[in-house]
């Protein structure tokens, strides 16, 4: 297990060196995107209008997060910046990685086979942020740089946020086909057969 402090944008080399179990802190820019950002961006891509996606996501860090935000003196301020459940994005994430070239996805609860395969193919990683650890994440926010697609509502909008030492996040899916969540879950499913015998 190694610890890395990475700066955005991330290169393919940055993420290919990471292995499941490594710990990563991110500095630079994080873009939030959950259900609706995925849907809208992929619809634009399908129509050949990728340029209408307001942020260049090549090498970007995408964060599954619906922040708590409030305007203070005319400026957006973040009061909650913890991760949301990534499983909801499983059906679209592989296409998102392929279309937009994001290099890291941060969320909680893990993702499944199709995303794991796309990460291997295109060179990306899934970083698990401890669920509920929102106060620490909020403190790592330096400022809100921009927000797009506010019509989707504040939790679903695309927030462009500058962070410093955002983490700890753990590499739970690396770009070599390893998925720590699925490994742990499969072991538990084997173990449970033994536990049944003791009930």
């Amino acid at each position: 297990m190694a610890e890395y402090r990475l700066k955005t944008p991330l290169s393919e080399e940055d993420v290919r060196q990471l292995k499941v179990g490594d710990i990563v802190y991110i500095s630079g820019i994080i873009v939030t995107g959950r259900d609706q950002v995925h849907r809208r961006a992929l619809e634009l891509a399908a129509k050949g209008e990728k340029d209408k996606v307001p942020v260049n996501l090549e090498g970007a860090v995408l964060y599954h997060c619906g922040p708590i935000v409030k305007k203070v003196d005319g400026e957006w301020k973040i009061f909650g910046f913890g991760p949301t459940t990534s499983a909801r994005m499983e059906s679209v994430e592989a296409d998102f990685i392929k279309e937009f070239g994001v290099r890291a996805i941060i969320g909680k609860g893990g993702m499944f086979e199709r995303t794991t395969q796309a990460m291997k193919e295109y060179g990306a990683v899934y970083l698990a942020h401890p669920g509920g650890v929102s106060a620490v994440a909020t403190k790592s926010v330096k400022r809100v740089i921009d927000v797009h697609w506010l019509d989707l509502g504040t939790p679903e909008a695309m927030w462009v946020v500058e962070v410093e030492n955002f983490g700890p996040t753990m590499v739970a899916i690396d770009s070599h086909g390893n998925n720590l969540f699925l490994d742990v879950m499969n072991k538990a499913k084997e173990k449970v057969q033994e536990v049944y015998k003791t009930l």
Partner: peptide
Amino acid sequence: ERIPICQD
């Protein structure tokens, strides 16, 4: 620092 523990 009186920041909500979790954003949910």
